[in-house]
Design a protein around this nucleic acid. Structure first.
Lengths: 261, 261
DNA sequence: CGTTGTGTTGATATTAATCAACAAGTGTGG
DNA sequence: CCACACTTGTTGATTAATATCAACACAACG
């Protein structure tokens, strides 16, 4: 069978998740991710309620903690690290639908079963909520339900933007969009240090970028190389990219550039 | 400039929407769309509250009633007809992100401005809510907020499925997926009449299908022709397709088929 | 009855995928 | 410490799926 689309690649075997039930009542108070996450709608005096509902879990790099098609019993909140979210076709073709960084609430795209898989790109910490405990929490804190709706709305906006990218942008436009999106990601640029102002970190491999943008690793590599020769970017180290000409990349990402192809 | 991707096509000019403020207090009671929409969480005795918040509007075929980038002041609920939702690139390339049929709530993918445009495919009726009135309604009926979160979750699942389609499926797989999705749409098949059991109606043009699936009209047309010669479908009339071999199409849609290309 | 919009089909062009080779970095174990 | 396997990334040659360009059929419509 000659596949025209991206060939199947071996997928990391799902391994059991390491659970470390550190439910200290004050865990949420000192949580550095709170300011970025939906938890911030819960007033400080009620954080013990939140802490009681959450189980804090370590996830090793490369481990899956959500698997497409399995019963959706838990919701997660990322407190450290980053995960890739993806869907698979029967023959192994993969589409990464997003990356979940600190503060991301996971499980919105859920019916009875998970619609996607999640795998840690680096060592992670996540808070796990059972469906019933989250439901109870939402009933007690309507502001959190409202906040989740906001989050879901934002994700829908992002999903539609990604559909536009996947359906209608050229390879170069996709890479440019990806770089600009990463550069815009709060906290990704070390903006405090001017010399690093436009250096973005990429915790994912070329294969991940390819599967996120609907391309092959070769096309991703070639596009980045060409951006480099064109002076649009520099690659100071593996997993790092310096944006040298943000305006040009932004234009290209918007599909405004005539030499986009 | 030689565009590699789908060339720009003329876009229907936005024209003002026809407003017909039929706010009869009992409009919601007799609304045929209620059973399909988020409104169904509001108890019958409170329907006058709902009716007071909604303005019923007729939209002519071809008219836009939501425009990408404009301030998102209103939310809509489709009570009759169907709309296409889309995003545009600067040079006119278009991605249709979805079709909104009866019962669809529009405006979830919203920040301060609309993230997409909506244009009627056929004469429509929609209920329009101002942001403030919807907010008041949600505050009074928390079940509706909960219901909206469910709806948003389902849309996210659908969006991820569409990303998989756009990023990783072949042209034939995309068309097959589209046909099966349409056939699965509740109320689209005249299932009551056995001889029409597998006939689906398509209110959109080939151009719309192409822009929804990230293809060109020619590729859509050719794929359908080939399905026809392969006996998978029949085209009894314009805007109608009979599914002759649903199993084969379902397999192809899942990417399981070796001759997918 | 011409005009316009929609859809089909054919010929050709082009982007990005595929196939292939290799370099650099990482970890393992002898 | 080094041979070895393995992963990741880059680059080149070629192929193939789909876009583009073009012509035409047909229906709706003024």
């Amino acid at each position: 069978m000659t596949l025209t689309r991206t060939a199947a690649r071996p997928v990391a075997q799902p391994r059991p998740v390491v659970i470390e039930p550190s439910r200290a009542a004050d865990q949420c108070i000192h949580c550095g991710a709170r300011q970025y996450s939906v938890c911030n709608v819960i007033p400080a005096r009620d954080l013990d309620r939140l802490a009681a509902a959450a189980v804090n879990i370590n996830v090793e790099s490369g481990r899956s903690f959500i698997r497409e098609g399995e019963p959706a019993e838990h919701f997660f909140n990322v407190t450290a690290g980053c995960a890739k979210l993806f869907k698979l076709l029967a023959d192994g073709r993969r589409q990464i639908t997003g990356f979940a960084g600190v503060g991301t609430f996971l499980g919105l795209a859920v019916s009875a079963t998970y619609a996607f898989s999640a795998e840690a790109l680096e060592p992670m910490r996540v808070c796990r909520f059972s469906r019933s405990k989250l439901r109870a929490l939402l009933d007690d804190f309507p502001a959190m339900e409202q906040r989740l709706l906001e989050v879901a709305s934002n994700e829908l906006v992002a999903a539609q933007e990604q559909m536009l990218l996947l359906g209608r942008k050229t390879a170069r436009e996709r890479i440019a969009s990806f770089l600009i999106a990463r550069a815009t990601l709060p906290g990704n640029c070390l903006a405090s240090e001017p010399q690093f102002a436009e250096i973005i970190t990429l915790p994912m491999t070329r294969a991940d970028i390819a599967d996120y943008l609907g391309l092959t690793i070769e096309t991703v590599s070639r596009s980045l190389t060409r951006f480099k020769t064109e002076g649009l970017i520099e690659i100071p180290a593996a997993g790092e990219i310096r944006i040298c000409n943000r305006a040009a990349l932004t234009q290209m990402a918007a599909g405004t550039d005539a030499h986009a192809a």
